[in-house]
Design a binder for these strands. Structure first.
Lengths: 211, 211
DNA sequence: AGATATGTATTACGGGTGTTATATAACATT
DNA sequence: AATGTTATATAACACCCGTAATACATATCT
């Protein structure tokens, strides 16, 4: 008889992602992951030091999914597409979204790297090149806040009756409003920028506080 | 007369609110509430059928706190003040905010009633009376989404370095942008409103699905 | 083939949870 | 004073969790 399958680190992460997708972080336990894999809890602990490590790895896998989602191009507006990608992700994987953005998250797994990626994509868009780099950061911040507010409502089910096309229209209109406002305020004066101080920078590396 | 109850329903809710404020929903257990009250778990179960009932009651108490916070007037712009109130609440009670808005929340305790209240306050503001009622709903939706996006970031700590005054400036600028956009789009045509369909209504009573 | 190493399964420990059954103590009524 | 009522305390049950110790089976090496 062939030796039973060895469960790799990737297998555990894959199973963990499935569990998290179906039941959220709070259901991601060693026993459930094991059951999902069709194994015992032993492979979980041979591949990861403890559950916290696994949870982190699964979150990072979820971020990969999110970034993929933001790379699709459902509309002809690249700036809008980023937001739509986030919303699509929140709709298809509400519990993954919740694990990434709706938990007090010291490790900051989804924050800086994700924003940096989006910022680089913005820099080459024709509508936005007239803005100062700092103004693009502020614009991204505003759009990101609106988008995440919308995504949060989607995945917590706070607005049950809402239709998907209306969600997209809402994002579109808000994007227009915020973009028009950004253009109208450009170029900002120095004192204007000073009044927005800490908003003009991102902590561009993850805040891995070595503990 | 009946024997006076030492631990009233209100006492249990108060203790539950304290526990939730300090440790979030996930730490709100019968034993912790009892400890907070300086009692055993018995009063919890004599005042509430089960823990779900208590959690719901505590959430409703948290909504009361939130509404109080939105009634304060830190600026001279009543519309802005609503948003500032939400942000202040999220800053002072991040775990309460999380319990209300960052959990998949079937009971929808904080949604409709809260929005309805804000909508009524909007109707009497001078800047907004020129808008159609439906347009005010859409405006509130957008502002609410932006505000909650901001509040979520505050209470999950996703943007650690951000300063409070900058948060308020961000809200102020976004409010201007969204309000200006709403005025510019007014009066909306019928087909315009049709394209926003389900956004124009709130489910004005809580969705208590009797199970 | 036999020994060894290794990945996996099983089991168990300690602690958390919701909930309930029982015991106790303080009050109200008779 | 005795009784009944009722709020509270205690303890127990069954179930979950993270994690470690142990047992086992299989692949690899000698």
């Amino acid at each position: 008889m062939v030796r039973k399958t060895i469960f790799s680190r990737a297998d555990v992460v894959k199973a963990g992602l499935a569990v998290m997708d179906k039941g959220g972080v709070e259901n991601l336990s060693a026993r459930r992951v094991a059951e999902e894999m069709g194994a015992s809890t032993a492979p979980v602990y041979s591949n990861f030091a403890n559950m916290d490590d696994l949870v982190m790895a699964v979150k990072m896998a979820a971020v990969e999914l999110l970034l993929e989602s933001t790379l699709e191009n459902p509309t002809d507006n690249p700036f809008l597409n980023m937001g739509v990608g986030v919303l699509e992700f929140a709709r298809k994987h509400p519990l993954l979204y919740g694990a990434l953005f709706l938990q007090a998250n010291d490790e900051c797994v989804a924050g800086p790297g994700f924003m940096k990626e989006l910022l680089e994509r913005m820099a080459v868009l024709p509508d936005l090149e007239q803005l100062k780099p700092v103004e693009r950061i502020i614009l991204l911040r505003k759009m990101s806040l609106f988008t995440h507010g919308l995504a949060t409502h989607i995945c917590t089910g706070l607005q049950p009756g809402i239709e998907w096309k209306d969600v997209l229209n809402l994002l579109d209109e808000a994007g227009d409003a915020i973009l028009a406002d950004a253009v109208a305020r450009s170029p900002r004066t120095e004192e204007d920028l000073a009044s927005l101080g800490s908003l003009c920078e991102f902590p561009l590396q993850p805040t891995k506080d070595a503990k």
